[in-house]
Amino acid sequence: MSRPQDRRQSLEIGRSMRRVSRGLSAFALALMLVGFVLALTAAPAPIDPRAYDLDLRGQRLMLYGLVVLCLLPGVRVLTAGAHYAAARRLAQAVVALVVLLELVASIVTGG
């Protein structure tokens, strides 16, 4: 991180990650918010949230929002890997690929 080239690349990756994080988070939160409003307006509020008779569309939108948010860490690793590959920094691209494969394997095999 101390070399100027590393610092410059680190800043670029940081900016890309920030853009990706803002975009995906905003999309996920918007889905959750719309779903939340749909669910709340469809049923009266009981004491326990688990007892809500949820509107199906609202429930689906909230779940989609949660899933989109949960994909963000993987997308961030992918973004970093793509940056390293584009800069031909093979060792760091391979490290990012290994982390991504490990993440995908964990998801597929159930953690």
Partner: peptide, 20 residues
């Protein structure tokens, strides 16, 4: 967290109205 959260979502252990 992303490595294990989908198991919980798949099992229904993430309730939208609590999680959101």
């Amino acid at each position: 967290a992303a490595a294990s959260v989908f198991v919980y979502i798949g099992r229904g252990d993430v309730h939208p109205l609590i999680a959101v």
